[in-house]
Nucleic acid binder design. Sequence first.
DNA 1: CTGAAAGCGCTTACAG
DNA 2: CTGAAAGCGCTTACAG
Lengths: 361, 361
Amino acid sequence: MITIKEIAKMANVSAATVSHVINGTAKISPETTKRVMDVINKVNYKPNSIAKSLKIKRTNTIGIITEDITVFNTPEIINGINEHAENCGYHIILNNLRLYKRIGNNYKDTSKFTDLVSDIVGDLVNRQVDGIIYVGAHCRDITGLIENVSVPIVYTYCYTNNESDISIYYDDELAAYEATKYLIMNNHRKIGVITGSLSSIQCQERLKGYQRALFDNNILFNPQYMKIGNWELEQGYLAAKELLSLSDAPTAIFSMNDVMAGGVIEAAKELGISIPKELSLVGFDNRECSYSYSPKLTTMSLPLYEIGKKGAEILIKMINDKKSSKAPHDQNNTENKIKLNCVLIQRESVFENPDKSFKIS
Amino acid sequence: MITIKEIAKMANVSAATVSHVINGTAKISPETTKRVMDVINKVNYKPNSIAKSLKIKRTNTIGIITEDITVFNTPEIINGINEHAENCGYHIILNNLRLYKRIGNNYKDTSKFTDLVSDIVGDLVNRQVDGIIYVGAHCRDITGLIENVSVPIVYTYCYTNNESDISIYYDDELAAYEATKYLIMNNHRKIGVITGSLSSIQCQERLKGYQRALFDNNILFNPQYMKIGNWELEQGYLAAKELLSLSDAPTAIFSMNDVMAGGVIEAAKELGISIPKELSLVGFDNRECSYSYSPKLTTMSLPLYEIGKKGAEILIKMINDKKSSKAPHDQNNTENKIKLNCVLIQRESVFENPDKSFKIS
DNA sequence: CTGAAAGCGCTTACAG
DNA sequence: CTGAAAGCGCTTACAG
């Protein structure tokens, strides 16, 4: 490994001078600059960033802690973080908790892995990361999981109830509102909904959005049109069967995830009901399967890339603010819980209802 | 940030002694050990790993270069690397090329991103990673992409034609053989195959496996039973329609990926042919969608986790061999191209053919 | 415009 | 069993 001293000797200058030409931290005459650059290029010298980091107390590295990288949302969030970080010259140290393998579906009980997380955070801090981004596997409250960290941290796809913590996730209520409104704009007024597990916040928020869209358009909420699911395909199938056998069956269904929408498609096929001609369907999540269904599913896409990107932006800003000892982020008047918007992906499962009597002007 | 010197002062010993009790590198009396540990615990001191790395010239970090983390195979490979690396005390620096965003479907032309990769490799080396794992987005030949690296490197989900390079991927031929054999064991003898793009190596290998299974069981290859697809659902649908309308239609189909198998399911539904009772179907890849289909698809699962794990094992072994200046890996008599086996995931799409006349003893 | 020197926070022969 | 000292490869006031 070739060092700055050796370059200095070869170029007949001091190590300080070499450092200055590399970093542009002092005015060096064009001649010596050239002499130095020539030997650097000749021997293909690259400064040792570990040594540099030790001196400047900054690694230009951010730590990412993912709860489980195999969950569908995570790679795209990492992609977003990665792109912005790279543009700012930051590297990424990845720590994957492998939560599913370790504690299965107990992920809601954060106490089961606080020790693990606190070890990892400690480790990251020892390795001098400039900041940390935590990526949840499920959007939920993880208050208390991480405490007393000496570097800036931002939470993505999860949140805490601590006001000064920065959390970035997406707006379930609004997304459900948009999905329902899209069906209404397509002249549907009898709109069924198949929910996820009622105990989940996602489900509650999406239900609110669904009802608000109905309300805003003067459509009475018909409890018969609401079926309780559990996010699984089978429940979507069963719920659709019930909805479609109602005497006054809905002409459209909003399924709170794509997987259950797969069950709706199956049920409709069995009943000989054509999607989208006789039944319109909107899913949620824009999972891989939504594109494989036939018809291809119209669904709400989660702003995963954007969540990652925004997280990286804010974190890097916090790092820079800290460096220049500005006021910490939570004392600015900015809102610390950031909800990004989902976007509707129009594919093949929605059709304008031909019944003109419902037409909205 | 608290340093080893401060700990030394507080415990009334030298920094050397503190270092020794932390690392167990010398016999220290129980009394001083306790005194030192007490202050370490009291102030929650954690040594600065950057400083340590600079001194010992080892970071216990491996660099992962992924071609695209959003491709389905990659997260699971990272998971495998991660688990083994963590067990060995190694950290991971992640570099994601975002190949799809950058060059779209030109990924086969590695010359389009050699400069990018060589920058990243250089960067990783400056950051003193102990080794590098490259994770392909598609299993293909990437000879020449990376050259002259001073740290050990292993390739996963791709390979080079350079004998000394270590590559870990999976055995397409054998997997197709197993899939076809499974159908034969279920008493099928008229087995259709829907291929991917014929130009792809995967497809050629899988075709070989299919034919070898037929041959080994004395079944004549019937060209009518082979339909050329392109990995997309629509082609699977069309191919299945043709196969199923043959006068002597196959009783089973091997689809070279899960997506086309989705098309087969659709075609069968349209024709009123029941899967698996009247038609057995095996897919390939074990993608998310294969579990959402109805019936749930029996398919070959790629050993992604295992590829990652094996990659990490070999890389860390190379790092240790290098440290103790043993012979480099490629001079051992071990094989440097490692093909792991796929495993059959039995779900609901295969049924034993009731026609006893075919029964294999 | 350039260089000598100190120092970032550790580890490790070496001496005692 | 313990400590003084050198050094890993950089950067950065400071002096000239």
